[in-house]
Each structure stands twice: as structure tokens, then as C-alpha cells.
Design a binder for these strands. Structure first.
Lengths: 132, 132
DNA sequence: TCTTTTTGATTACGCGTGTAATCATAGATT
DNA sequence: AATCTATGATTACACGCGTAATCAAAAAGA
């Protein structure tokens, strides 16, 4: 049986686009997903169907039948997906730590005053939350 | 002609391991790369040869001949590779911005005092550097 | 010089992925 | 009822990747 972690690791880039629709709104019919995806990006309906099927097989989606239509629902939650992707990225490149990433990124791309201010407020908040 | 960006995007996970060796020490012979990689991880010499070849084809490596041996040299620089991978990750998941990542990560995984302190010092430094 | 060994080049192959067409089945239409 | 149509299921196919074996050429040793 595939763990959530394994499921998430197995999801391809094209498949994530389908999941994104369902994270914004669920349940959605295949048609609903297709319409949303045609609106934003571009993808052939047949292709989207295949992606939906693969996600079903991987256990990343499920469906419920409602008046003879399938309505799809994400099994993988956005927060879990993001957390695992972020962890895996940090592990691969920055020893799993945040600060080396921040350090590297700011050394490569000069941050604006606004961006630095945002970071400072975040850190302030982290410190405050950590006190109690 | 492939741009540096295209080259980097085309490099696979297994191939990066070869590049990592050369970022630590270059030039290296194929044998040198193989020895280092057998020491750390594991990989069949034949496989490593193939990876070297693919990196050559992609333009991520070059070689110079020295007394009838090939010595490999990275064309792709570590900083460029990291920068593009980081940008692409941030774009995919966090609108290309750092602070949403920090915010998300800390909300999902409680940061230690030490980690928060590191971030604080980084931000302090960014503010200081930004003043002048 | 002939043979063995090294090492770079070529070829192989199954699997996942992106992309899509075809098939089949259940309602809808005539 | 027979046909059309929508939609989920199945099948297709090229390409990149991980993994590696085989080939070939050159160097080294006998």
C-alpha cells in the first residue's frame, strides 16, 4: 500500500496541474477540470482525462458518483504536497535547512526593501510565537 | 544552441551527482569521478560513464586531454545551477517569493530556537547591507 | 609485434511521462 | 427501438532516464 509520501513523490508535473484545480474547488467533474484548465493554461481534454486516470490509479484522487457523473475529490492535500515538495527540495540542495536557502537566494538575487521587511516581520513573529 | 538555462533544466537527478563531484574538485578523470562516487553513494562505473557522456552531449561538461586521458571540467557552475533550481522551485510553488516559503515551512515544521536565530541574523545582515 | 587491459563510444532496454487516439458503455435524441 | 453523443476506460507511442552491456581504439605489457 502506497503511503501518502510515496503517492506525492509519484505525481508528475502535468498531473499536479489537475490537482491544483481540485485544491481550489472540489468536487469537480472531469468537464469542470477541463474547463478550468483550458481557461488558465492549455491542455487537450483527452490528455486531461488521462492525467485524471493516472491520479486515480496512484491514489491521489478519488471520485464519487452523483447522478451518473463522476465528481473528483483530491485525496492528497495541498499542504501535505507542498510540505513534502519543500522538504525534498531543501534536502536536495540545502541540507534540509531554511537559512542556507535564504542566504543563497539573497546573495544571488538582491532582495527589495519590501521583501526584506516581509522576512523581518516573519522572523519577529516566529520569535514571538516561540516565546510562549 | 542551448542556453545555460536550457542546459540546466535538462540535467537529470542522476547526472547532478556527477556534477557535484566536479564542483568539489575539477578537473577529474572519469576514474576519479567514479572513485568519488563509489565512496559516497553507489553507482556502477558503466552507469557513471554514461552519465558523463550525457552531460557532455548536453554541454554541461567539457573535457581536456592530458597525456592521453580525458579530464572533465564542469561548464555549468554550481551557483548557476542552484540559482535556477531555486528559482524554478519558488516559481512553481511560492510565486517566486521567499517569504511565502519561509512562512509555509515554519507553519508546517516548528523551527528550533537556533534555526530562528539563524534567520534573524540573516535578516539583520540583509537590512544592514541594504542600508548602504 | 602480439596480446591484454584500459577507457571512451555505441547500443540496449524497461519504465514513467506527455500527449493523444480509440473503444465501450450508458444516457439522450429521433 | 435505433442511432447519436458524452464520458470513462483502454490502448498507443515517442522520448528521456536509469541502468548497464558491448564495441572499439589506444596504451601497456609480454
Amino acid at each position: 500500500m502506497a503511503s501518502m509520501k510515496e503517492i506525492i513523490a509519484s505525481i508528475s508535473d502535468a498531473e499536479v496541474e489537475v490537482l491544483r484545480q481540485l485544491w481550489e474547488e472540489a468536487p469537480l467533474s472531469a468537464q469542470g477540470i477541463i474547463e478550468r484548465m483550458e481557461k488558465s493554461g492549455n491542455a487537450h481534454p483527452k490528455t486531461i482525462k488521462t492525467l485524471i486516470n493516472r491520479l486515480l490509479n496512484k491514489g491521489a484522487l478519488r471520485y464519487k458518483e452523483e447522478n451518473r457523473k463522476y465528481l473528483y475529490i483530491p485525496v492528497v492535500r495541498k499542504a501535505d504536497f507542498y510540505r513534502l515538495k519543500t522538504e525534498s527540495f531543501l534536502n536536495k540542495f540545502f541540507d534540509g535547512e531554511l537559512s542556507p536557502l535564504v542566504s543563497f537566494f539573497s546573495s544571488q538575487k538582491k532582495l527589495s526593501d519590501k521583501q526584506i521587511e516581509e522576512l523581518r516581520q516573519l522572523v519577529d513573529k516566529l520569535e514571538a510565537d516561540n516565546d510562549d
